[in-house]
Structure formats: structure tokens, C-alpha cells
């Protein structure tokens, strides 16, 4: 059984089909990239997988359970327990320090543990910035805090919507390396990106166009290390 399966999923806004009969399977531990032009429905799909939205039609099976018709309350619980989210904007709570931001995810998930949160920051190379506020961190550092926050509760799936879209190459490399580590630990990764190099690093890349998949590329030389073609 796949960890995640989308069966004939559609999301319709008025007469706009943001997602149009999408089918997709993601195995446990897989690293999948999703590409596609702006407005093709990538974020819409991520929101549905991330349990922040429900499809108009179709089924979404997560761990065998259909999450397409659950209540808001249950969505919150699934999100809390199974999913780690990383966004293009480095969404952090602006009045909490890096450490406190990571602990916030622990707080909603189970119990805050300062030591463990600190270790997560160490993993993303920010131990010395733990007590800085987001405004005192660079964009790359902020995104690394977001990564630390996404992995703190050992989610089954990490969903990243354009995680490197606003990063320079150096920071992109750091974040991609963190993804590689997550992948090596067995975390399932779904990464939305515009960047072909980011997409090519994944095991498999899917292209979404006008609400449905048009192309799938399997990376036969997968190493998890990003290559720049210059």
C-alpha cells in the first residue's frame, strides 16, 4: 500500500478546475518533485495533501485512510500528527525566537522539549542563532528554522511548497542537503518547485499543467545531491 494515493481528485472553483481528475501515488520514503507553470494547481494539490483543504471530488488516501471528507477538527489532528510543512515564504512567528518557533510545533504536537528543539536547530546549523528573532535572521536562516520546525515532530510526510524559491544558491544547497538527510532517514518528501535543478535532485519529478499531470521523469542517477548545470 502506498503512503499517499490521490484518486481522481478534482478541485473546482466556480468553473475553474484547479485540479482536474488527478491521480498520483507516493510510496513511503519516496522523494517526489512537482513542477509546473504558475496557476497549474501545485499549491492547491499541496493544500489538499497537507490536510488544509478538501477536494471537490475524488479520494485522498493517507496511510490507507481517506482524508478527503474529514471534518476541520480531524484535519487539524492529521496535520499535527503526520505532516511537516515548509513554505516559500519563511513563515515564522515574528515575536518568538528561532528556538521558540521550533518549540511551538512541539507544543501543538505533544510537549515542548527545549533540548530536542535545540538539537533540531543544530542539525540545520543554527545552534548559535537559537535565541534570535526572525527579523535578526537572514532569509536562508529563516528557511532553515522552518525546516527544523517541520522535522521536529518526525512527520511521515514533509510537504515543501517552493522551499528554495526565495533563496540564493548557497542557502539552497544547505536546504537541499537537509532534504537529503531527511530522505536518508526515511522521511517521505514532496517538493513543489519551479527550479529544474531542484526537481532533478528528487527521485521522481511530475509535471502539472492545467490541473493534471502531463509528464513524469524518473531520476536513474539519484544521489540526493543537487547539481548545478551552469
Amino acid at each position: 500500500m502506498s503512503l499517499l494515493e490521490l484518486k481522481d481528485v478534482s478541485k473546482i472553483y466556480g468553473d475553474l478546475h484547479a485540479l482536474d481528475h488527478v491521480n498520483m501515488k507516493v510510496e513511503k520514503g519516496e522523494w517526489v518533485a512537482i513542477m509546473g507553470p504558475s496557476g497549474s494547481g501545485k499549491s492547491t494539490m499541496m493544500n489538499i495533501i497537507g490536510c488544509m483543504d478538501t477536494p471537490t471530488e475524488g479520494q485522498v488516501l493517507l496511510d490507507g485512510r481517506d482524508i478527503s471528507k474529514v471534518s476541520k477538527k480531524e484535519q487539524t489532528i492529521i496535520r499535527r500528527d503526520k505532516i511537516g510543512l515548509i513554505f516559500q515564504q519563511f513563515y515564522l512567528v515574528n515575536y518568538l525566537t528561532a528556538l521558540e518557533n521550533v518549540m511551538t510545533a512541539q507544543y501543538y504536537h505533544s510537549v515542548p522539549d527545549e533540548k530536542e528543539a535545540m538539537e533540531a536547530l543544530e542539525r540545520v546549523g543554527l545552534a548559535d542563532r537559537a535565541h534570535h528573532l526572525p527579523s535578526q535572521l537572514s532569509g536562508g536562516e529563516q528557511q532553515r528554522v522552518c525546516v527544523a520546525r517541520a522535522l521536529i515532530n518526525y512527520p511521515e510526510i514533509v510537504l515543501a511548497d517552493e522551499p528554495t524559491g526565495n533563496l540564493d544558491e548557497a542557502n539552497e544547497t544547505i536546504v537541499m542537503d537537509l532534504f537529503r538527510q531527511l530522505h536518508e532517514q526515511g522521511t517521505t518528501l514532496i517538493v513543489v518547485t519551479h527550479d529544474p535543478e531542484v526537481a532533478q535532485t528528487a527521485q521522481r519529478a511530475l509535471v502539472l499543467r492545467d490541473g493534471h499531470f502531463t509528464k513524469e521523469t524518473v531520476n536513474n542517477n539519484f544521489t540526493g545531491v543537487i547539481h548545478y548545470n551552469d
Binding site: M52, I77, R79, D81, Y91, L92, N94, A105, H109, R149
Partner: peptide, 15 residues
């Protein structure tokens, strides 16, 4: 934005 973020992290309306 912060409220949305907290909810995305698994915060219930209650919390």
C-alpha cells in the same frame, strides 16, 4: 498570518 501558521502546525481553534 500567524494564526494560519499556528493552525497549519496543528493548533486547534481551541488552543
Amino acid at each position: 498570518m500567524e494564526i494560519g501558521l499556528r493552525k497549519a502546525l496543528g493548533a486547534s481553534d481551541q488552543s
